[in-house]
């Protein structure tokens, strides 16, 4: 196996530039060089970087039966792939395109080998087998990295959507409101809490009104989430008022045995706001002269 490895390292060293050119050409032939996404210059720089990392890995690492792309010797290749993967995900490349891109390395390698080893067909077959295994492992790993990167993007988008769906509204100096709409599962409750607490720090709020008028059902779990949010708000140094508790929800909460403890609750958001104004020392009064009396 040492012979085939030496052969491959020598090949990669001696014909590096030619292989880069041929790899780019193959990508073009197989329709995976996305000239709409990457310029020719970018493609070349990426291909050179990837082939360099590949060559260094082949030279250092075990490439026989015990080939393992998670070994330390492949760290450079893994890092390069991670960077390229992230960029390609961001520009909308598919996992198939990415794997085909890596697999396209085989063709130029085979081509060069055929020229170099024309005299010894047995050794050639051995070397082809050797390269196939490395490049296949490489392509497989690429797909894994690519999918992991895509999951990160999806996660980020989910967070962004969540921020859109639970806006924290500033009602007055020191007063924030969070109108909750829809269903509350544990994940969402966690994110809502995080958003709200960050907003308290950012806007130095003293009172937070969580309005649950738009929440479909309040079961024990949702009630627990609300009370935990209120507890966290208090720890941060602000106060939490829960408003929008309909008579039906009040009944359910009592039947479920939910104890709101010291958390202030109210039926309407008006009452909650009045309470909040009083707490921060704001007075709302009607104009003294009724409008109709003016001539």
């Amino acid at each position: 196996m040492a012979d085939t490895k030496d052969q491959l390292v020598a090949l990669l060293n001696e014909q590096f530039d030619a292989i880069v050119e041929a790899w780019i050409a193959t990508q073009k032939d197989e329709g995976v060089r996305r000239s709409d996404l990457f310029s020719a210059k970018e493609t070349r720089a990426q291909t050179v970087r990837l082939l360099t990392a590949f060559r260094n890995g082949v030279a250092e690492a075990e490439t026989g039966e015990d080939l393992d792309l998670r070994a330390d010797e492949w760290a450079e290749l893994r890092e390069t792939l991670s960077d390229l993967g992230r960029e390609r995900v961001e520009r909308g490349m598919t996992p198939t395109e990415m794997a085909t891109f890596v697999a396209a390395l085989k063709s130029p390698l085979f081509h060069s080998l055929r020229e170099r080893m024309a005299g010894s067909p047995d050794a050639l077959i051995e070397e082809v087998w050797h390269i196939t295994r490395i490049v296949d492992a490489f392509a497989l790993y690429t797909t894994e990295v690519f999918i992991a990167e895509r999951e990160l993007v999806i996660e980020r988008q989910r967070t962004e959507m969540l921020e859109l769906s639970t806006p924290v509204v500033q009602l007055w100096d020191d007063i924030l409101a969070l109108p909750l709409i829809g269903t509350m599962d544990s994940v969402r409750a966690q994110d809502v809490m995080e958003n709200l607490l960050e907003a308290i720090v950012e806007r130095k709020a003293e009172i937070v009104i969580i309005d649950i008028t738009g929440v479909q059902t309040v079961d024990t779990q949702v009630a627990q989430h609300l009370l935990r949010t209120a507890a966290a708000v208090r720890l941060m140094g602000a106060e939490c008022v829960i408003s929008g508790i309909s008579p039906r929800i009040a009944q359910t909460m009592v039947q479920l045995g939910v104890d709101v403890g010291e958390v202030v609750t109210s039926g309407s958001i008006q009452n909650a706001l009045t309470y909040a104004f009083r707490k921060v020392g704001v007075r709302i009064a009607a104009e003294e002269t009724p409008k109709g009396s003016r001539v």
């Binding site: 709020a205 966290a232 208090r234 720890l235």
Partner: peptide
């Protein structure tokens, strides 16, 4: 008074069941 608790710390303490009822709290 305990002041300046970070959001992540507040969430973690609540999860641990520690709501520190004996302390007053403030933002700063």
């Amino acid at each position: 008074y305990i002041v300046g608790m970070r959001p992540a710390v507040a969430m973690t303490l609540v999860e641990l069941g520690m709501t520190l009822p004996e302390m007053r709290t403030a933002l700063n």
